[in-house]
Amino acid sequence: MSAWLTQHRAALAAAFRRLSSAPLSTLLSLLAIGIALTLPAAGYVLLDNLRELGNRASGVKQISVFMDIGASRKDSNDIENRLREINKLSGNLNWRFVPREEALQRLQKTEGMAEIVASLPRNPLPDAFIVEPQDSEPAALEALGQTLSAWPKVAHVQLDSAWAKRFSAFLRLGRLALTLLAGLFAAGLVAVTFNTIRLQVMAQAAEIEVARMIGATDAFIRRPFYYYGALQGALGGLLAAALVLGGLRLLAAPVSELATLYGAAFTLHAPLGQGIAALTLGGALLGWLGAQLSVSLSLRQVG
């Protein structure tokens, strides 16, 4: 056990030495890996923020329930009780009752509508409910809309499911495109590590030959290269996380300003510990994979 640990420590130290022995080449490799990981990572973060923004956007997951024009306040109370029951069961429903008087007042305040409203012999607007479920999936919204429209004294249920569907499809497409992009860049990272390690194996052919002759196992020979690949990938992942965080920091103020101009309060959220750890670990795994492929192939060539 002690010998095993000693060898792993030595392999890790050797990997660090190799990284620091050629700083310029290491820096260039790290930049290539960092940028390769930055693009999909930044894409995921932006898509996540977009999803958040879409969910917050007015009307995206709202359902308007219009009562019959002749419905009484008792009928409205009945609808409110039913909504309360649904909320009790699922616990993810918000709603607001909009009396017909309030609706008329709002209409009156709309530019150019005051005179028209004043000329009306009576209030033509019905009582209404604005229902907002937590689940914004188009299918869930539609199912809830159907349930509401079947209730008594409900004249019309309006939901912008087409918009929600389009938005959801856009997010799905974005995710798929990013997954493809991530796969492509992951292959690039593996290729960068593969090439770096191959050059190292060739440069150390003499040492590998001697080590084999005097009793080095394959694992002993391979270990420093694996550590090197994983270390390079992990550092590239950290660099990518730093680039994403830096980019978000630069964008945060202008995005908030833009959101304020549109009357919304929105701030970009950055990946925290978990996201950074995922990038670092992902980079390390891909680096290890590149090293594994390269060492297997190169050692056969070295003999």
């Binding site: 002690s2 010998a3 095993w4 000693t6 003499a206 040492e207 001697v210 080590a211 005097i214 009793g215």
Partner: peptide, 22 residues
């Protein structure tokens, strides 16, 4: 079959590193 990228001591250390000595 000596390794010319390291010192004499490091050449002699190689078998001991393989054996896993501290």
């Amino acid at each position: 079959k000596l390794l010319f990228d390291r010192s004499a001591l490091d050449n002699v250390l190689l078998p001991l590193n393989i054996a896993g000595l501290s």
